[in-house]
Design a protein around this nucleic acid. Structure first.
Length: 882
RNA sequence: GGGCGGGUAGUUCAGUGGGAGAACGUCUGCUUGACGCGCAGAAGGUCGCAGGUUCAAUUCCUGCCCCGCCCACCA
């Protein structure tokens, strides 16, 4: 069986097979186990249209690490997957498809369009979930949900109706963000403000009676056609005499009242503001305060309306040029200045947003935001890292009402019907037969659908069965942690929190674990338009899922962005291979292994590696508790590579190859213990390779996915062994260093004389020195003191041990003296610093005693080293002289 | 205009109130009975700048300079 294990790890041979087996055996299915503590994560649902990108890979890897770890810890674990219907994005895909047939959605009609969209969903919606399987995501596929499935749709209607009944949803004629290309409203957070170069135009508006004029400044001259007032600040002396008078709108001739409003900033432009209530949010507010008419001059397609007079039909940009030309010709345009200012763009298509008046549905946010603020302020929900708390709170403190209606077809249809007879507005969970007010059967449903995020907001409870009172809901709600990118704190996190509080009277999750973005190698966002994205599936095919996962986790610091480099991926791949080969080594040497067979006493190396393993285990668990997944991964990487492979495996070899049966048994038992535990600690990070190896280990269970998480056993801690190993490692390294510098061939066995006056250290060297220092291909003679110093020998001092490496013929006394002199210079410097500190009264009085003690030790050791180096240099001088 | 993150070895990044770390890259060796996706050794850093607190600052505080991101109704 062991012969099957290839010398290089090949992910392709194991990953898909293992995942299929895990899924078939339902290891990830959450049975309701009332006796166990629940641990639940609802997956941020990727778009059905989507393909897995690096952001998904990171997000789901982090969730999977937490889920697998908790599952092993024995929690009743549920990771609930699903997809989002993604209104605009999906609709756009189907429209594209139609366009290939030369059709528009209007050609096929709403019903046919929706039929096609569902078809599209069924055909392509499974792609992303297949890709999550490739990544190794251990979610409960039996509970997969979709934001537009029956249950979620029922939840949406229920929430809409309840909010409406509480007066928290209303329909209003307000200024909204309109995308002339997508032909729909978007919410405030869907508007991207981009610094855009433009101009500030100064335009003269003549006064109606008598002489004079008022000059306004604007960046959008075309909207003047919709002006219904000129406003100045009430405290502005320059204009006080004008308030109450009237101006005449150039090109149009409309009379405009000159009003005073505190909104106007006297220091901007001329201090006089043209007021266009139908096309600017602030002007809209001013208009309400002063009862101004609202004149809409730009239509839904971005063209000028009938109200724009002779400009009707012109695109808004063309209209701007026309208006400017006419103003100029007629002498109204005084000047223009260059001005870079923030202009709102559509988050999807990057078209410039047109603020426009429109009748839409809104959620009244103030009453919903208050509890959502409170739970975070009170710490009932915790952001990790903590700094995101402020971002969240600041947004909610300044919250504005949420425009939820979208002029799309794909989505949750707004559950409102209008009576064509009496114009009643009927809000209902199910389609009404007749108007409850006049009995008419002529009813028409609102044509619009809801913002996609409306259904996402309900995700933590709609997926668990709400509005039914299910046992899942009672067991798993509130969920344990939400893992998400920091880009959707507003879109999603905040909305889930207020929805959860409003409908479940309880927070949706305890912790919000926020991660950053995966950037490209140059530090730019990965994006389709830049074409700089890296496809995780391609990466998995080339390097394996474990490599990708480990790379993402080890490079992750909470909340911070990380760059994607193939070199890092190779590092992770190499680590998979290292682990594989370490395991291969153990498995190839298990002949005669019995877990409780008769064994010899543990060696220093055994005690040391068990102590290091214990330390690693405790640190890894602690880091996971603190969401420091990167630190946990790093601790494991270092342990496996630097301690287990580089030292322990090497130290175990002689016993395995040539040891007595009992010694061999001991080595085997320690190897298996540490390897198994390490695999288990690594499993959440690298599920495939760890399962593949674990299956080969003797006396394990059915699957590592359900193996118990290793428990701490303080008895494994052995500070003496760690200190002793530290000494021996230092000496070994020093000898290797000398050999390398002296160009001693690695194959040539050396002999080292170690002089160690310290009795405790001497005992360590005497008992274990030979075994460990063997790794420097050297035999040793160990002495408490040495009278007759060898002449032809290289020399080093480390940890209070003098090392002589007699190398007849290889030593050039002059070169050796120069080498030691360099060493001495470093020692002198360090010693001076230590002595300086110890001479300072402040340090002695105020530094903690252990720090002072450590400084004293350091001084002793350095002083010893200095003396030894001096002595050696003296001997070398003599040698030169002779 | 406000807020946040970052500036540490050639590169990418960890980390810490008390002797500067890793990976990659570079240089030197190595058919060492798990692994060349490897082994051993080495070189390489005024921890952005200036102050302050402290016995002690790369780490804490203040200011400044760069880079990145987010928020914002000044036309």
């Amino acid at each position: 069986m062991h012969r099957e294990i290839a010398p290089a790890y090949n992910p392709h041979e194991v990953e898909e097979k293992l995942y299929a087996w895990w899924e078939k055996e339902k290891f990830f299915h959450a049975k309701m186990e009332a006796g166990k503590k629940p641990f639940c994560i609802v997956m941020p649902p990727p778009n059905v249209t989507g393909e897995l990108h690096m952001g998904h890979a990171l997000n789901n890897t982090l969730q999977d690490v937490l889920i697998r770890w908790r599952r092993m810890q024995g929690y009743n674990t549920l990771w609930l997957p699903g997809t989002d219907h993604a209104g605009i994005a999906t609709q756009a895909k189907v429209e594209e498809q139609l366009a290939k047939e030369g059709l528009s959605k209007y050609d096929v009609g709403r019903e046919e369009f929706l039929r096609r969209t569902w078809e599209w969903k069924y055909r392509y919606g499974t792609r992303i979930t297949e890709q999550l399987r490739r990544l190794g995501a251990s979610c409960d596929w039996d509970r997969e949900r979709f934001t537009m499935d029956e249950g979620c749709s029922a939840a949406v209607r229920e929430v809409f109706v309840r909010l409406y009944e509480q007066g928290l949803i209303y329909r209003g004629y307000y200024i909204v963000n309109w995308c002339p290309r997508c032909h729909t409203t978007i919410s405030d957070i869907e508007v991207e403000h981009l610094e855009t170069p433009g101009h500030l135009y100064y335009i003269r508006y003549p006064l109606r009676d008598g002489e004079g004029h008022v000059v306004i400044a604007t960046t959008r001259p075309e909207t003047m056609l919709g002006d219904t007032a000129v406003a100045v600040n009430p405290g502005d002396e320059r204009y006080r005499h004008l308030v109450g008078r009237r101006a005449v709108l150039p090109l149009v001739g409309r009379e405009l009242p000159i009003i005073a409003d505190a909104y106007v900033d006297p220091s901007f432009g001329t201090g006089a503001l043209k007021v266009t209530p139908a096309h600017d949010p602030n002007d809209f507010e001013i208009g309400l305060r002063h009862n101004l008419p609202q004149v809409k001059v730009i239509g839904p397609d971005g063209r000028m309306t009938e109200e724009a007079g002779r400009y009707q039909g012109l695109d808004r940009w063309a209209a701007r040029q026309e208006v400017l030309r006419d103003l100029e010709v007629q002498g109204y345009l005084l000047k223009s200045e260059e001005l870079t200012h923030a202009v709102g763009h559509c988050y999807r298509c990057h078209t410039v947003i047109e603020p426009t008046l429109s009748r839409q549905w809104f959620v009244r946010m103030q009453p919903l935001a208050e509890p959502a603020i409170r739970v975070v302020e009170e710490g009932r929900i915790r952001f990790v890292p903590e700094r995101f708390t402020k971002i969240y709170l600041n947004w909610l403190y300044n919250i504005r009402d949420w425009c939820i209606s979208r002029q799309l077809w794909w989505g949750h249809r707004i559950p409102v019907w209008y009576c064509l007879q009496c114009e009643a507005e009927i809000v209902a969970r199910e389609e009404p037969e007749a108007c409850p007010r006049c009995g008419s059967r002529e009813l028409e449903q609102d044509p619009d659908v809801l913002d996609t995020w409306f259904s996402s907001a309900l995700w933590p409870f709609s997926t668990l069965g709400w509005p039914e009172d299910t046992k899942e809901l009672r067991h798993f709600y509130p969920t344990s942690v939400l893992v998400t990118g920091r880009d959707i704190i507003f879109f999603w996190v905040a909305r889930m929190i207020f929805a959860g509080l409003a409908f479940m009277q309880e927070v949706p999750f305890r912790d919000v674990f926020v991660h950053g973005l995966v950037l490209d190698a140059l530090g730019r966002k990965m994006s389709k338009s830049l074409g700089n994205g890296v496809d995780p599936i391609e990466v998995i095919e080339r390097y394996g899922a474990d490599s990708l996962r480990f790379m993402l986790v080890i490079g992750n610091t909470p909340g911070n962005d990380q760059r994607f480099h193939f070199e890092k991926l190779e590092g992770a791949r190499n680590f998979c291979n290292k682990l594989w080969n370490a395991a291969r080594f153990v498995l190839l040497n298990l002949e005669g292994y019995r877990p409780d067979g008769e064994a010899a006493e543990k060696t220093l190396a055994d005690r040391w590696i068990l102590s290091r393993y214990e330390d690693t285990l405790v640190r890894v668990t602690g880091h996971l508790e603190a969401y420091d997944l990167g630190e946990a991964a790093r601790a494991l990487y270092d342990f496996v590579w630097d301690e287990f492979c580089d030292w322990y495996v090497e130290l175990a070899k002689p016993r395995l190859y040539r040891g007595a049966p009992a010694e061999r048994a001991t080595a085997q038992q320690v190897l298996v213990t540490v390897l198994r535990g390490t695999l288990e600690l690594l499993h959440p990070f690298m599920p495939f390779v760890t399962e593949a190896i674990w299956q080969h280990l003797p006396h394990t269970g059915e699957t590592i996915t359900l193996a118990p998480w290793p428990e701490s056993d303080p008895a494994r801690r052995d500070p003496d062994a760690e200190a002793a190993m530290g000494l021996l490692v230092d000496v070994t390294r020093a000898i290797r260093h000398i050999r390398s510098e002296m160009n001693v061939p690695p194959s040539r066995r050396a002999h080292a004389i170690l002089v160690c006056p310290d009795r405790a250290n001497l005992a360590v060297l005497a008992r274990w020195g030979r075994d460990v220092i063997n790794l420097a291909t050297a035999d040793v003679t160990i002495l408490p003191a040495l009278e007759d110093k060898p002449r032809q020998a290289a020399h080093a001092v480390v940890s209070g041990v003098e090392i002589y490496l007699p190398l007849a013929g290889l030593i050039d006394p002059q070169k050796e003296a120069a080498r030691l002199a360099r060493e001495l210079a470093v020692v002198e410097k360090d010693l001076a610093r230590a002595e300086g500190k110890l001479a300072s009264e402040g340090f002695l009085a105020k530094a903690p005693p252990e720090v002072v003690a450590r400084e004293r030790e350091k001084r002793e050791e350095l002083a010893y080293k200095r003396a030894a180096l001096h002595e050696r240099l003296r001997v070398l001088k003599e040698l030169e002289g002779s």
